[in-house]
Design a binder for these strands. Structure first.
Lengths: 218, 218, 218, 218
DNA sequence: GATGAATGAGATTTCATTCAT
DNA sequence: TATGAATGAAATCTCATTCAT
């Protein structure tokens, strides 16, 4: 659990060491959240984790190594999420299932959003890390592509770009709403996202009468 | 036209100076595109613009100041784009109109994408710049919100989050496809985006028979 | 003791760190002495202290911050000096006491002269530093003003400007004689200063034996 | 009149050129006054003189060259001032004469104070300029030394250091009172300075009854 | 296991001076 | 005579990483 960076993996940590690793990972995540990966200094992380520079390098080979550790956690979560999406039918239950899945995405993103963003930021960076990201993104979109392809999707929808549209829409709306404090109600956002995806991508029939929405809140 | 940064605005430039400003802005944009804002050094910019550090600081107070100048241009383009979207009807012409608009977004983003991304990256950074971004985003989404609200949208769609979904989806797909070399055909992407938005957000009727879609991915 | 600059005060230093701070302070003082504050480069200081730029900024925020640290030491010394001046009587013992005090001023100035001068040089610069200087000067002159006011001073002497005259005369003569190599004997300078101050400001009677004196009024 | 710097002296200026030189000299003086010589940028000077960098170097070889031009003016004034001090008698007329002379010093210093200070600041700087300053200081103090030596000075007063004390006291008090806004009345300062010098250095008899002082203003 | 100290390469920024018009 | 543009050497400052205790 939470294996830490390269140097940490070459030893077997005791309880105290594992706690320190966790503190550093959390501090990194928090700082990436607040000021972004690029702007985060190792000093910020160790101050937040209430430890020292020396200790940081006891467990991580570099700042990027810590990002990589977080990224592995994040990739695992995201892939599990993608795998958790079953076939989406056109009816009300399909929509409801989609809604639940979007909600799960929100939960994961609330924790790992900073990592996802750091990933895009650190454009070329470490090739190994970049490959990890691309591989993960490919797995996720390929799973989604399959789900879209098998659905009774409307004409004009090409499954591959639609998968990118799906994941991109989720990511950005979550970013806008969670990280910036945008003036949008969370529940309404989840409902709307599910509706757009269902109707627009999975060929869902619009809900007869919207139990929650339709009143056009602003 | 292309007013340059803070120091440049306090003098009135001659033709030569204006040319240099333009060269620096272009070089900055190109470098942000290639290696990202964070990774770009002032040195990269001046080498690309074939001038000296001293000259850079004659026209811009800092790298962030250059970003701000580009951001103003970008905000103007994006707001014009938003204003250019007329009412979207549910029929084939509504869909076609949306497709054309998405294509225009692609064109603008091809130029200013790096700025848009830098904007999110440089999270809190300079407050004035952050405010500019928020104001601009608000204007754009508010315009889109109006268009969505007046359309015969499907139930379950709340216009405000839908506007964020719209712009977020466009932004990310363009980023994936344009900036990363993702394995998606451009035209198919535009068609699919237009279709998702039309059906999923503006309550458009699905096209009778999809002329472009259905052929799978590449 | 010797608390260092702003960054140093936010941590608690160990012995090694305190030694480094002291080395930097001494190197700064020496360089200010030799070539003046304005002409001193951080590079001069770190070379003299046999350390690196990085280390300098570990303990001081800037060259000015180091000056401020020295200034605090200097202000404390100067204020202690001012407090050490007792009532000055008109007789030989008053004169002798004044002479001893002037000699102590010389000793303090020999160490902190460069700081005093840098203080006036860096005219408005950092407002906090300027305020510190003004406050200190006010304390010193106010103490001196009191001593002058209580002495049997000659008519025409207003204590407040006289205090400035006293401190100004001491400062400049020390600067001329100590820092520039002006052709004046140190002991004669101290004697003369004490005599001028005693007779001219504190209403002292001229010394008994004197080839030119003896017209002994009062 | 106001010959300008080295480059200017190699041409003969027309009216317009002479006006520009004067504007630059004044701007320099004003800036030295406000923020000091070291902190003054050529840019400050040309902006204040409402002209350009190119023009500056048309008339002055460097920033230091402008200081040198001002310094020559200043040295001439100061030496004339020193020459203007006649023998100082011990009586009331001697004191009055001294008072008038101190007042003339104040007038000169009000204009050239910044130059005097820049002179001390720019410690080693250009050797030619340094020599000019030392020569001028020597002339002035030597003249003053003679006047002190010939006066019926009190015992314990060595003329050479006394001359430095005299000029140093005048300089600093003027600096404190004129340049810093110190809480001292100008007229009282002049009276007090004259009294201190007369009694303390020139062996003057104290005034019978003090017209201004004695009540110990603060 | 943990820490504060130190480093130095590299990035940013300044500014006196020269140049082209 | 005047100007804005350009320069580049030098100065300041940052920060990931290593080291000694």
């Amino acid at each position: 659990m939470r294996p830490g960076g390269t140097p940490a993996q070459q030893r077997d940590l005791r309880a105290q060491g594992r706690r320190t690793v966790a503190r550093l990972l959390d501090a990194g995540l928090r700082s990436f959240e607040t000021i972004g990966y690029a702007a985060t200094r190792v000093d910020d992380i160790v101050r937040m984790a209430d430890t020292s520079h020396g200790t940081f390098y006891l467990y991580f080979a570099s700042k990027e190594d810590l990002l990589a550790a977080l990224a592995k956690e994040c990739a695992a979560e995201m892939e599990a999420l993608a795998d958790g999406l079953g076939p989406v039918g056109p009816g009300a239950d399909g929509r409801e299932q989609l809604r639940a899945w979007v909600q799960r995405f929100v939960d994961v993103y609330r924790r790992y959003g900073p990592v996802v963003r750091a990933w895009s930021e650190s454009q070329i960076a470490d090739p190994a890390l970049a490959r990890l990201g691309q591989r993960s993104l490919r797995r996720i979109t390929s799973k989604l592509t399959d789900r879209i392809a098998e659905a009774s999707r409307p004409p004009g929808i090409d499954p591959a770009p639609a998968a990118f549209a799906l994941i991109g829409m989720l990511e950005r709306v979550n970013y806008f709403v969670l990280s910036r404090g945008l003036p949008v109600d969370d529940a309404a956002a989840v409902d709307t996202l599910a509706a757009v995806l269902h109707t627009g991508i999975f060929g869902g029939r619009p809900a007869r009468r919207a139990p929650t929405g339709g009143r056009g809140r602003r």
